[in-house]
Design a protein around this nucleic acid. Structure first.
Lengths: 252, 252
DNA sequence: CGCGGCGTTGAGCACGGTCAAGATGCGTGG
DNA sequence: CCACGCATCTTGACCGTGCTCAACGCCGCG
C-alpha cells in the first residue's frame, strides 16, 4: 500500500540517508558515516501525504516512528468525549511517534498540515539497531528526553503564562526551528490553522486572532493569513519573560 | 559523602533488587531473574533524604537516574526569573530524572516531600546495560514514552479542564498509584503541600483550598490537612469528563 | 452564484487570580 | 508546660483575563 502513490516519485523504496539534506537533524546525526548503511537498511520510504491526510491514527497498531522529510505534521490526542488536544507540531527532521513506544498502539493521531513526505523506522528493527549501536541508543534517549522537557515547558507555558506570552513563545520556537533548517527565521508561513494554534496553546481561536492583531498593531509582527513576519524579535522575547534564549536543537 | 548518613542504615552499599518489594514496579520488572545480578551490580544505594532535601539540582552535572524506594519526591523546573513549575510527583518504584537524559545537566530539581530513600542508576552504566539487555532497553523506552504521554495528559488537563476537574484528576491518579503499591486507594496522606498541588495544576493555592472544601461539602471527599479520604470515587470520575478509566502502570 | 471553512471583531460574563485577613498546626525555646 | 513565631491552610471580597456567543468578512471551490 505504501507504493500506491510513490511509485513514480521514488523509484527506489530504500531511503538514502547518505544524500539526505536533513542528516544533520535526523537520526543519522548520531551515526558514523561508515555505519549509515545499517540505518538505511531499516528505513522505509513513506508515501506522500496531502494536507489533512492521517499519517497514523490513535489506537491503531503501532508499527513505526516517522521522520518528517518535508512538509509539517501535527499530533493530537482525542478523548472519549471527542475533545482534541494538539500535542505537537513537527517540522522536517523531527521524529514523530516517540510517545507511542510504550504500547502496542499509537498514543496519538498524526495529521499532515501540508503536503508531507516521511521516512518510516519500523520499531522492532529500530530497537534492534539501537541495541547494536550505543550512539544511536544514546541519541534515542536524548530525543525522548527532549520531548519530555519540551512537554514540561509546554505545561509551564499553559499554567503560568498569558495568551500573549504563549503565542510569543510559539512564534519564537517556530522561528528558531525554521532557522535551523536554513529557512528564514523572521518570515515564514504557519503550517497550521489558527484553531490548531489555539488548541495547542490552550486558548480560544478568537484569542489567538486578537493577540495576532494586537502584536501587529504594536509593530512586533506582520501577518497576512498564515504568512508571518517577525519585525521585532527582541520585543517578542520581551513579551516572554522566561523562554530559553537558545533552546537546544529539540523536536516537538 | 553518600555514606555519611547511611552507614548504619545500610551496611552493604549494594542494593538488592532480588529482595526488594518494588521489583514489580521498578526496573527489575523488565529483567529476567537470572540477569538481575547485572542490574544490582550497577545500582548504588542512595542516602536517606529528609523532607525538603534536594536529591539533585537543576543545571548540576547529570549523573544518575533515581528510583524512589520509599517516601515521595517532587520535580520542578525553575526559570531565570525565579518562577517554579512542578513537573511531577514520584512515588516508590518510579524513576526520576528521565527528562535529563538529553544533556550534561539535570533539567529539573528533585526534592524530597517526606523522608525518602532512593536507588541510583549511574547513567553511563545504565546505558551500557541497556545496550546489552534488549528487554531493559525496551523497558526504558517504555518508561520514557509513558512520561511523554503523561506530560501530554497534563498539558491537556491544564489547557482544557476546570479547577475541579484538574484536582479530581490528580486525586484519582494518586489513588490508583497508591493502590498499585498495596496501599489504600481511598484513604491516604498527600505527600505534597497545597502549594505544590496548585503549582503542578496551574492554579492558585486559594483555588485548591476552595475546591477541596467544595468537594468536602458535596460529600465526595473528606480532608483534614494532608489526610484525604475519597468517599465517592464515581462522583470524582464524574467530575472529570475524560480521564483514562484505567491508566497504565505509569510513572509521575 | 452560493456554500463552507477559516479568520476577525465586538459585547458580556464567569472562572479563577489577587489581595487581605484570619485560622490552624507545628517546632523551638524559655 | 506554655509562649511565641512561622508556615500552611482556609475563607472572603473584588477584579481582570480570556471564554462564549454572535455576527461579519474573506477566500476557494463546486
Amino acid at each position: 500500500m505504501d507504493r500506491a502513490i510513490s511509485v513514480k516519485l521514488s523509484p527506489a523504496l530504500k531511503a538514502s540517508c547518505h544524500t539526505c539534506s536533513l542528516s544533520n537533524l535526523c537520526l543519522p546525526l548520531a551515526v558514523e558515516e561508515n555505519q549509515l548503511d545499517q540505518l538505511e537498511d531499516i528505513v522505509e520510504q513513506g508515501r506522500i501525504y496531502d494536507r489533512g491526510d492521517h499519517l497514523f491514527d490513535q489506537d491503531t497498531p503501532f508499527r513505526s516512528c516517522l521522520a518528517v522529510r518535508s512538509g509539517a505534521v501535527k499530533t493530537s490526542i482525542i478523548t472519549e468525549n471527542g475533545s482534541e488536544q494538539v500535542t505537537g507540531f513537527f517540522l522536517p527532521g523531527e521524529l514523530v511517534g516517540l510517545d507511542s513506544l510504550s504500547g502496542e498502539r499509537y498514543a496519538c493521531t498524526a495529521k499532515a498540515l501540508e503536503r508531507t513526505s516521511v521516512c518510516k523506522f519500523p520499531i522492532e528493527k529500530l530497537e534492534e539497531l539501537t541495541s547494536a549501536m550505543p550512539e544511536l541508543q544514546h541519541h534515542m534517549y536524548q530525543l525522548m528526553s527532549r520531548e519530555i522537557q519540551g512537554s514540561h515547558q509546554l505545561a509551564m507555558l499553559l499554567s503560568k503564562n498569558s495568551a500573549e506570552e504563549r503565542i510569543a513563545a510559539l512564534l519564537l520556537s517556530l522561528s528558531s526551528r525554521f532557522q535551523r533548517r536554513r529557512m528564514s527565521g523572521t518570515k515564514f508561513n504557519l503550517p497550521m490553522a489558527r484553531s490548531d494554534i489555539a488548541n495547542f496553546l490552550g486558548l480560544a481561536v478568537e484569542t489567538v486572532s486578537r493577540v495576532f492583531t494586537r502584536f501587529q498593531n504594536q509593530g512586533i509582527i506582520r501577518t497576512q493569513g498564515r504568512e508571518v513576519e517577525l519585525l521585532d524579535i527582541e520585543s517578542l522575547r520581551g513579551v516572554m519573560p522566561d523562554f530559553d534564549r537558545q533552546s537546544p536543537p529539540s523536536p516537538r
